[in-house]
Design a protein around this nucleic acid. Structure first.
Lengths: 172, 172
DNA sequence: CAGAAAAGCTTGTAGTTACAACTATTGTCG
DNA sequence: CGACAATAGTTGTAACTACAAGCTTTTCTG
């Protein structure tokens, strides 16, 4: 212990072995509890790793990564918000920060002057190239270590199925 | 359109059918993307349902629910923060709000005067009883509809395995 | 073609969260 | 026993996010 910090987070000692006493005690309730805790734990791990390398926070990475894989390295704000599952208002300000940092540029559509694109700049591409190994590395530790590729595939399929039913607007 | 609102959130129309083009394109990367999006989608659904019934937000429910299942309907602040996977500082303020609402009481430990407990009050127990069906109902829609209990069990097991490896402090 | 409705994005405001520093109590040694 | 470290919570500050209202452009309709 010397250059340690870890701010506070959680002691993370008994958390692993702690009995998964969740909200309810039904199989589905357990599954939701496991999903929540796993998401939180992995997210923490990723953000910690990024902070340790003096990189921007995780949302920045997700924007850069998503835009980088889009057709022309650009995406409509609305689509981006939808993929990242955040509000449009939130995305506007998030992209503002990326623009101010010189990683993203706002471009506009000729045919429809309402839409604006978030377009990746070279600096953003470079930063992404630096951040990706960090994120992928942490994910390897979290996933690859204990999950075969086949299991990962099944997990993805199952989760997507849940998401599918969760997205059906229950307005009726 | 009359008493509608839904603020903004996401259009949630093409989100379901959208190709899961995630961060990377490895099976594990896909799994992480699916986990993130599913968590966000279900959380949104739950919060929307709670807001619609004029109930407090989801974090309140999680505190009440967790404390209610603890031995003496009380929990040490630190343990509670660990289970909920939020920071201690954040929990202090979250519990402050619950105390102000008369749902939780702070009690203290005789043998160790540092620790304080979050103790469930009758009003908290009653509110929990009201909120639980709402939350459970939404989870049923999200999970039960498309997942057998056996699948839910496998999902829980898999997620817990991932969480386990994610929690191992990578200090070494 | 004018007016209303819808779509796309931004901005103002408030609430929530994390991070870091601080206080108080307990445990450890010299 | 007295100083140092570790543990448990709280608090101050800054950043992020959601919500709701607003603006502009496009589409629909009579």
């Amino acid at each position: 212990m010397s250059e340690e910090a870890i701010s506070e987070r959680a002691s993370a000692a008994s958390a692993v072995a702690a009995p998964p006493r969740t909200t309810q005690t039904t199989p589905h309730g357990e599954a939701w509890g496991a999903l929540t805790r796993t998401h939180a734990a992995v997210t923490q791990r990723l953000q910690e790793a990024l902070a340790q390398g003096d990189y921007p926070p995780l949302p920045w990475y997700e924007v850069l990564s998503t835009v980088a894989e889009a057709p022309e390295q650009r995406m409509r704000m609305g689509d981006l918000a939808e993929v990242l599952v955040i509000t449009r208002g939130g995305l506007t300000k998030l992209v503002d920060r990326l623009v101010k940092a010189g990683l993203i540029e706002r471009t506009f559509c000729e045919s429809d002057r309402r839409v604006s694109y978030a377009t990746l700049l070279p600096a953003g591409r470079d930063l992404l190239a630096e951040m990706r190994p960090v994120v992928v590395g942490e994910l390897e530790v979290a996933f690859s270590a204990n999950l075969s590729e086949a299991e990962a595939g099944r997990l993805t399929e199952t989760l997507d199925r849940v998401r599918g039913s969760a997205c059906e607007i229950g307005s009726a």
